[in-house]
Design a protein around this nucleic acid. Structure first.
Length: 504
RNA sequence: CGGGGUGUAGCUCAGCCUGGUAGAGCGCUACGUUCGGGACGUAGAGGUCGGUGGUUCGAUUCCACUCACCCCGACCA
């Protein structure tokens, strides 16, 4: 018998973080690389997580007055050209469709034929095609606001890709709203930022810093971009969602104008905002450990897995019968405005192997149920937020009563742990020596840095040092809006407190 | 788009230097023994060695070309 593995994932985080990340995805069966360069296959377990995210976000959008619609995958190239900064931002990574037909070629294969008069691009984002549509819909101030979201796939031809974090095609939602006044559009932008923050913290159990992007980090064509930034376990920042105030840039480019109450022809104010399957990458790197994925209960496809333990046919029918009944009893309980999601894993494989599979997939609660438990009318419970060794017997009745509470505890413990992790690695830094030191010296696990809070003028300065350290300004936290001081790079007074970090 | 590398079983790879048409581990199938921390044994299935062309009696092996993918840079939700 080979020696026992200490943990499920090789390598461990501290040994090789990027490789650990890949292995967690593989072990949890979340996704795999596809034959198409830069694209991924999202497997059922990974897709279920996305579906749960969609369900919650979709509900939140609708509660705030938004509705869903769908716009085309293809955008005429000329549309993209309308907004200069927008073109510049996306031109380098667009997939272009130039033909609409295939013909046999001399070698027995196929070749494109039927060249299009105007090339179509596969949407990298939909501001222009939606703006074009909105220009027809908006005639009067009475047509506003328009509050529309779409769930879609987009393509950005990335050269370096990583599952969930950056792929050539990804799934997301993009909200596009039109407002009569600037104030209303700004309010929308901020409300969505807030919504994303609540989703990240309350559902993903992933603490985020909500803030405004610096000049160079803004969305191409936006007047102002806001983002939520989360700290991953390698101390790097992940931009997990963005909300853009587009001013009148796109309404002018797409001619979204209307007659206001004074009968004046004016341009509308627009916003756009999105989160993508990248959130799954954030989820993985926030909670997972050296035994694989750890899922917050509110987004877990399964809350409880029951693993029957038996040998022989006699025990089999007895144990399975007990488990079926247990499953029904647990499913009758409510958690988070829904049923507790229970799986009875009666597959014909060994118990130990089975238990580890569920650990690697991040199921919050595992119940091992064998003859010994049945005799005492109890279950043997393991929680994913605790060590795999840390299992304990609980009476069946007590477990059934407490399931929702336990799930709530796990949700909270994951958030608290992640928040403490971030706070322990966030420092307010006022001088350059300390700034350099913070991002150069290796802390525990071989990871340098974290979040540095420094005043920053955001009008030039510090480029060389930032490049050397591979650090970027992540955002200007909304909560620190009034915190002004001298720019760490230029000494300019009245500079805003800004989060700096290495970023994904 | 620059620099480096790799293509052999479902996966990870050995074999190639010193040509004689294929191997290991994992996985998969069957049976048996097992079974509350990731099992073991036995028997099997599975490959036109990335593609094309050349050298040769003979190419996975040598040569040329080509395609694909990976890694490091520049760029990025």
């Amino acid at each position: 018998m080979a020696k026992k593995q200490q943990n499920a994932i090789t390598p461990m985080r501290a040994e090789d973080y990027p490789e650990w990340y890949q292995q967690v995805i593989k072990a949890a069966e979340l996704a795999e690389v596809s034959p198409v360069r830069g694209c991924m296959v999202i497997k059922p377990w990974g897709y279920s997580i996305w579906e749960n995210m969609q369900g919650v976000l979709d509900g939140m959008f609708k509660e705030t007055g938004h509705v869903n619609a769908y716009f085309p995958l293809f955008i005429p190239m000329s549309y993209l050209e309308r907004e200069a900064e927008h073109v510049e931002g996306f031109a380098k990574e667009c997939a272009v469709v130039t033909h609409h037909r295939l013909e046999p070629d001399p070698e027995g294969g196929l070749k494109p034929a039927g060249e299009l008069e105007e090339p179509l691009i596969v949407r990298p984002t939909s501001e222009t095609i939606i703006g074009e549509t909105y220009s027809k819909w908006v005639q009067s101030y009475r047509d506003l606001p328009i509050l529309i979201n779409q769930w879609a796939n987009v393509v950005r031809w990335e050269l370096r890709t990583r599952l969930f974090l950056r792929t050539a095609e990804f799934l997301w939602q993009e909200g596009h709203t039109v407002h009569a006044t600037e104030a209303e559009a700004v309010e929308e932008t901020e409300a969505i930022l807030d919504l994303y923050g609540r989703f990240a913290e309350e559902y993903m159990a992933m603490p985020v810093v909500k803030g405004e992007k610096t000049r160079d980090e803004r969305f191409p064509g936006a007047v102002n971009t806001y983002s939520i930034e989360a700290m991953m376990q390698d101390h790097k920042a992940l931009q997990a969602g963005t909300s853009h105030f587009l001013g009148q840039n796109f309404s002018k480019a797409c001619k979204i104008n209307f007659l206001d109450q004074e009968g004046q022809e004016v341009f509308a104010w627009t916003t756009s905002w999105g989160v993508s399957t990248r959130l799954i990458g954030g989820l993985i790197m926030t909670h997972s450990d050296d035994d694989g994925l750890v899922l917050p209960p509110r987004l877990a496809p399964r809350h409880v897995v029951i693993i029957p333990i038996f040998r022989g046919d006699d025990e089999r029918s007895e144990v399975l019968g007990y488990c079926e009944k247990l499953k029904a009893e647990v499913e009758a309980r409510e958690y988070d405005d829904g049923k507790v999601r229970v799986e009875l894993d009666d597959r014909d494989i060994r118990g130990g192997e089975k238990v580890w599979q569920h650990i690697k997939k991040g199921v919050p609660i595992r119940l091992e149920v064998g003859p010994r438990d049945i005799a005492s009318d109890s279950v043997f419970m393991g929680r994913r937020d605790l060590s795999p060794k840390d299992k304990s017997g609980v009476s069946r009745e007590e477990f059934i009563t407490r399931v929702p509470e336990i799930l709530g505890e796990i949700q909270k413990s994951l958030y608290d742990k992640a928040l403490k992790f971030r706070e322990d690695r966030t420092r307010t830094i006022d001088n350059l020596d300390e700034f350099r030191e913070f991002f150069s010296s290796e802390a525990e696990g071989g990871f340098a840095g974290g979040f540095a809070l420094s005043h920053f003028a955001d009008d030039g300065g510090g480029e060389d040092l930032l490049k050397e350290l591979k650090v970027t300004p992540r955002c200007i936290p909304v909560e620190e809006a009034g915190n002004l001081g001298e720019c760490i790079f230029t000494g300019k007074p009245g500079s805003r407190l800004t989060v700096f970090a290495k970023a994904y």
